[in-house]
């Protein structure tokens, strides 16, 4: 090792980044995700510009309103309504990725702080906080989603949701405001497991020497939790977060399967797959393209998550 490098000091994050780049699968994941992000961001506009198809364009002649296999005109074929599947997969990707990322961030922020604080505080506080989690666990979340969607959906949506959906989908766009509610609902339920996992990790760490040392040297409680305990618990947390993204995307798919997910004519990968599975035996492309796109994305997310875990884990430096 060169002297200079040591003097510069390698921060945890710089170090991690280097290690991450050495992990081929993680790099592959990052590339796929980047391509996917670019595709869903700009793709729909390009398709519209090139072919005139949009995710909600239904041909006006009856014999075109059916499912066509992939062709030059429709690279992924069309769905039962004769809509271009590529356009729908791209548009669905916007929603699925947004659902996954936003809800996971929400669950990370809430879950990690909640779990760590509960575990470190211990005693009565820990007890009360975990009992609250237990209670929330037991609330049937499908009921919660139904209520959220109906009570706060459409006209009754809170102003900030209306504002956001108007920004994204245009004025008075009901479908979009339902989607924002969905983010909110899924975020609300997915932090619970995260909190339990973090708590479990912190519990096993909090009596270790480095924490005791930090406490003895008068480091504040806040700093102990967020500078010492959380980074050390990060390994499983990141694995869990990478599991949360797909599980949230799948939760959304599940709600779509039950018919209370995204609003038509919007779609998500989950709802496209749910529609496609019904026709698997006759129109396999309806499942294959959205399904494979979704699986590839989740794959990449998982590879990236694993790479991050290996890269970030402070203990790996010991080896």
């Amino acid at each position: 090792m060169e002297q200079q490098e040591i003097i510069k000091g390698t921060s945890l994050w710089q170090d991690a980044w280097k290690r991450l780049l050495r992990n081929k699968l993680a790099v592959f994941g990052m590339i796929v995700l980047a391509v996917m992000l670019i595709a869903v961001t700009f793709g729909p506009a390009i398709i519209y510009w090139m072919t005139g198809f949009t995710y909600d364009y239904i041909p006006p002649t009856g014999n075109l309103v059916r499912s066509f296999p992939p062709s030059l005109q429709h690279p992924m074929g069309t769905d039962d309504q004769g809509r271009d599947l590529l356009a729908r997969v791209l548009q669905g990707g916007r929603i699925s990725l947004a659902v996954g990322l936003i809800s996971t961030i929400v669950s990370l922020v809430i879950g990690v702080s909640y779990g760590a604080i509960a575990a470190y505080s211990g005693g009565r506080i820990d007890n009360v906080m975990m009992r609250i989690v237990d209670i929330l666990y037991s609330i049937p979340y499908i009921l919660l989603v139904v209520v959220l969607m109906s009570v706060f959906g459409g006209q009754n949506a809170p102003e900030w949701i209306k504002y956001l959906s108007a920004k994204v989908g245009g004025e008075g766009n009901q479908g979009m405001s339902q989607i924002f509610l969905l983010f909110f609902a899924l975020g609300l339920i997915s932090w619970l497991t995260m909190a339990r996992v973090v708590r479990g990790q912190v519990l096993s760490l909090k009596n270790q020497e480095f924490v005791l040392a930090a406490r003895a040297t008068g480091v504040s409680k806040f700093a102990i939790i967020f500078r010492h305990l959380v980074p050390n618990a990060l390994g499983p947390v990141i694995v869990y977060a990478t599991l949360t993204v797909p599980s949230v995307i799948l939760s959304e798919a599940f709600l779509s399967f039950l018919g209370i997910g995204v609003q038509p004519p919007y779609a998500s990968w989950g709802s496209l797959a749910a529609d496609g599975i019904k026709n698997l035996a006759i129109f396999p492309w309806q499942l294959i393209f959205p399904g494979v796109t979704m699986a590839l994305t989740l794959f990449s997310l998982n590879f990236l998550g694993d790479g991050l875990r290996d890269a970030l884990d402070p203990q790996t430096r010991k080896f």
Binding site: D56, Q174, G175, P264
Partner: peptide, 30 residues
């Protein structure tokens, strides 16, 4: 919410958009 209702609604929406120039928002509910 129902497969068939949704298809008819999406079709009608597309028709009004193409024939009358009006985009009628769809709202499906349980």
């Amino acid at each position: 919410t129902n497969e068939s209702n949704q298809r008819i609604a999406e079709f009608a929406q597309a028709q009004w958009k193409q024939n009358l120039g009006i985009t009628v928002p769809l709202q499906n509910m349980e």
